[in-house]
């Protein structure tokens, strides 16, 4: 770079001007009545969807943590780096969950139409090759769909209002309107699936039957992406809330499994590690096509799958 004094002077003048404008903007804003970001409908739903009280039943699943602990306990002389610890399980679980599942959340948020949502649900159903993982994903997905139908999209129409506002802001009113209809269509599809495929949905016996899989199963990830889009969360927020939800479920499972207490749990949740980890995973999967999503931690498949062979269990996964 050539040394030159003139641009520097210009830069400092520009800086002064910017500082002056910013100060005046802040003064003008201060005169307005308070308009916190918390008051937007999207922010309101961000809080609801990230709330531990959201009745998804996530508390019933440990995402392989219980099995991981049991498998390590069973080892007579584990190598030092293979001793069970939540600190080593957490990053593995976050990496595995984001590589297998996050692309489906992102894809559904980008296009929450009925056709796309059903296709994503079907593709994810083909990609979770583990009974325990399927059970956890479908149980929470159905619970979320229930929350949408009974609570968010209920007679109060709170979600509809939020969607309308979000749509008006984005200038795509018609598109968002069909979003709620897409959810209705999805529910209808699920009801036909459940009635005609009730026997095969259990996934227990059979083996290699000729029956086609049901059209939709209601897995958590695509529904989460679609509903977040409907209530106005942006893509990055949606991804963050989804991954944080996974971490919160893991941490809460760890507390109930007696790994650590509530203060350590909050310390873990508040840590820069968890924040950085989630951000890094979102960045890693931002462009991943759902066809290319896959397991980045193969032993996780074994731990989660073998949850079935634990003698005593406090979780469903």
């Amino acid at each position: 770079m050539k040394p030159s004094t003139e641009p520097c002077q210009n830069d400092s003048e520009l800086d002064d001007e910017i500082a002056d404008l910013e100060r005046r903007l802040a003064q003008a804003k201060a005169k307005q009545p308070p308009q916190s970001a918390l008051l937007t409908p999207a922010a309101h739903f961000l809080l609801l969807l990230s709330d531990s009280a959201l009745p998804l039943g996530s508390f019933a699943f440990s995402s392989g943590l219980e099995s991981y602990l049991a498998h390590h306990k069973a080892l007579a002389h584990p190598a030092p780096h293979h001793r069970a610890s939540f600190t080593s399980f957490l990053p593995l679980s976050v990496s595995s969950y984001s590589s297998t599942t996050l692309p489906f959340v992102l894809a559904a948020h980008r296009d929450p139409s009925l056709a796309r949502l059903a296709a994503l649900d079907d593709a994810l159903d083909a990609a979770i090759v583990c009974t325990v993982g399927r059970r956890a994903s479908v149980a929470q997905g159905r619970a979320l769909l229930g929350i949408w139908e009974r609570s968010f999209a209920g007679p109060g129409g709170v979600a509809a209002a939020a969607a309308a506002i979000a749509a008006a802001a984005a200038g795509v009113g018609a598109g968002k309107e069909s979003g709620a209809e897409a959810m209705k269509g999805f529910s209808a599809l699920l009801k036909t699936s459940s009635s005609s495929f009730s026997t095969s949905a259990g996934g227990g016996g059979g083996g290699t039957g000729d029956d086609d899989p049901p059209p939709v199963s209601a897995h958590l990830a695509p529904l989460f992406g679609a509903i977040c889009a409907l209530v106005g969360l942006d893509l990055a927020q949606t991804a963050y809330v989804f991954m944080l939800g996974h971490v919160k479920a893991l941490v809460s499972a760890a507390v109930r499994a007696g790994v650590f207490g509530p203060y350590q749990a909050q310390k873990t949740l508040a840590s820069a590690t968890v924040q950085g980890l989630i951000a890094a995973m979102i960045e890693r999967e931002w462009e991943t096509k759902v066809e290319e999503a896959g397991q980045s931690v193969p032993v996780m498949d074994l731990w989660v799958g073998r949850h079935e062979v634990l003698y005593s269990r406090i979780f469903n996964s």
Binding site: A123, A127, P213, G276, Q295
Partner: peptide, 25 residues
């Protein structure tokens, strides 16, 4: 109709310093 899609991705690139190395994982 897709029945099963099983994908395994083993990548030596650590997306975050807290992630274990591929070998450790």
């Amino acid at each position: 109709r897709l029945l099963v899609r099983d994908v395994v991705i083993l990548d030596s690139k650590q997306a975050h310093p807290q992630l274990p190395t591929l070998c450790d994982s």
